[in-house]
Design a protein around this nucleic acid. Structure first.
Length: 520
DNA sequence: AAATTATACAACCGCGACGAC
DNA sequence: AGTCGTCGCGGTTGTATAATT
């Protein structure tokens, strides 16, 4: 402890104030050993740096012996790796880095060290912390973890690897390949995929929609179906015991990087929707004929699975767990292992939370039931329909609902859609109706932000700057339901895009609320 | 302005994997 | 084959700071 005293003195006026802690003795643990714990002092840092400079990295346990540093080798290694390395990049993650992290995580899952290797100057711990905090934030907001473009990219890569790798669905683990072979697409992601198109900025990495769509359904489903990796981390599920009480936003920190590219979403929607749909090579319940050039036929669809799940049976109970982080790899094995094909389609469906679609497709035929990618297809198609069928411009939201609810003016919607993500979309209504039916409002729990009224009878919950309709009294819009409760995370997500639309009469407010900008 | 709460970050812990001896 | 050292990872804790009440 002379060392500590020394440190304290040296650390005087230093950075963090570990000295204080040391002084209290809190930093010292370990009982018998003189080894110190807790925050490092600048003096300790200096010693460690000097030692490493002289002897090089490695053999960390020798540090204590040779340098007198009262730290265990493990701690020394961690300190060096995370803070003292000369090549470390300090400061917040740049937009590019954020973007990269997302991409890497989509491919690797919680392989922080590997991710760090891809990000010069960044440490695994840093990335992990970043991810976890952002994920939590995003989860809370009910936002998807990965932006669509990332998904697409991952899928594309996945597809490529698919050709290369011999093992497929039933195949056991190939740790190295896993990340690639399976694309981590959290349920939430698909759940909100529809939103993603509007919410997420255009892909920095422009991936031809076609590539994405060409991916076999198996690949898409891989996360839960055939990839051990997926089983580990791709699907965001968590053991019930570990399930977060509230869903958190996943992308909050990415705003900067993604904000810049928003139009791309439209790109996919507008330009590639048809192609996209067609090119989706995988066969799904929804489309048995992937090569079909008439997606439209199959696209009366109910809209994207993404947001809402009209299916009470699947959505409600599993809802919470669906929105989990990939990091929860452990549970994946339970339903994503190769031996056990999927969390089961049902599970997937649940994840997707496809809405009941009696009108257009029978539940069995719905792509939503087939798998994650299907959802993408659906969405894409739906988008196309919206564009191509003025007379039938049904907001994706409405489609999602599987119920006819859209009353808002199509034109207007379309316009705003591009800007805000279909502000006027009735989605909110449908969503609300669905939620009101299957979602316990109480679920919002204590974490729920205060609510305020935007319109008579309607309440909006503010979440991360976005308004989330909590209750809708059915004022203006054509709501079929007079009472809507959007406490569910998926709706929250939706709210980011559509929530504001609930009361589009409030233009300014709407625009403001809809901004994804900083919230990401 | 003070108190409370939420967030971001640093650091630690336990465990398992891997390679060297 | 067993031991040791190192590394990586998931999870957790503690603290400083920011935001909110």
């Amino acid at each position: 402890m002379t060392r500590e005293n020394e440190d304290q003195m040296v650390n005087k006026g230093g950075i963090s104030s570990p000295s204080a802690e040391e002084g209290s003795g809190g930093g010292n643990v370990g009982g018998s050993g003189p080894l110190k714990k807790g925050p490092w002092t600048s003096a300790e840092d200096a010693i460690l740096v000097e030692y490493v400079t002289k002897h090089g990295e490695g053999n960390w346990n020798a540090v204590q012996k040779h340098s007198g540093l009262a730290r265990c080798g493990k701690s020394c290694r961690l300190r060096w790796a995370n803070h003292l390395r000369p090549d470390l990049k300090k400061g917040a993650f740049t937009a590019d880095e954020e973007r990269r992290i997302i991409e890497l995580h989509a491919k690797m899952g919680n392989k922080w060290a590997r991710m760090a290797a891809e990000l010069p100057g960044r440490t695994d711990n840093e990335i992990k912390n970043y991810w976890n905090t952002r994920i939590k934030r995003r989860q809370r907001a009910g936002l998807p973890i990965y932006p669509p473009d990332i998904c697409l990219q991952a899928l594309h890569e996945n597809r490529q690897s698919e050709h290369i790798s011999a093992f497929s669905s039933g195949n056991p683990q190939h740790p190295d390949l896993l990340p690639i072979n399976s694309f981590e697409i959290p349920a939430v992601e698909f759940k909100n995929l529809e939103f993603n198109h509007q919410m997420y900025p255009p892909p920095l990495i422009d991936i031809p929609a076609r590539n994405l769509l060409d991916i076999p359904a198996s690949n898409l489903l891989a996360p839960g179906v055939n990839s051990s990796y997926a089983s580990k981390g791709m699907l965001s599920t968590v053991p019930a015991t570990k399930r977060p009480r509230q869903l958190e936003p996943l992308f909050s920190g990415l705003s900067s990087s993604f904000n810049t590219s928003f139009t791309s979403c439209n790109k996919y929607q507008n330009d590639g929707s048809q192609q996209t749909v067609q090119s989706f090579g995988f066969s799904s319940a929804y489309d048995q004929n992937p090569t079909s050039d008439h997606p439209s036929s199959s696209f009366v669809l109910p809209g994207s699975h993404a947001l809402l799940n009209g299916n009470p049976s699947s959505s409600e109970p599993t809802w919470a767990m669906k929105l989990e982080l990939p990091s929860l790899q452990t549970q994946m094995g339970s339903w994503g292992s190769p031996s056990s094909p999927l969390p089961s389609l049902e599970s997937v469906d649940t994840l997707i939370q496809s809405p009941p679609n009696e009108q257009t497709h029978s539940g069995s035929l719905s792509p939503r039931n087939s798998g994650l990618l299907d959802a993408v297809l659906y969405e894409s198609q739906s988008m196309k329909n919206i564009k191509n069928s003025p007379g039938q411009q049904i907001s994706s939201a409405s489609m999602v609902q599987g119920e006819v609810m859209d009353n808002s003016s199509p034109d207007h919607h379309e316009t705003e859609w591009e800007v805000y993500g279909d502000p006027i979309s009735p989605l909110g209504h449908s969503a609300a109706s669905v939620f009101s039916k299957y979602t316990p409002i109480s679920g919002s729990s204590s974490d729920e932000p205060p609510t305020f009224e935007t319109t008579p009878g309607s309440k909006v919950k503010q979440e991360g700057g976005d308004l989330v309709p909590v209750e809708y009294g059915g004022k203006d819009e054509t709501s079929n339901s007079n009472q809507m409760i959007f406490s569910r995370p998926d709706f929250l997500l939706a709210s980011n895009c559509f929530g504001p639309q609930i009361d589009h009469s409030k233009g300014p407010l709407h625009a403001e609320r809809c901004s994804w900008g900083t919230s990401w």
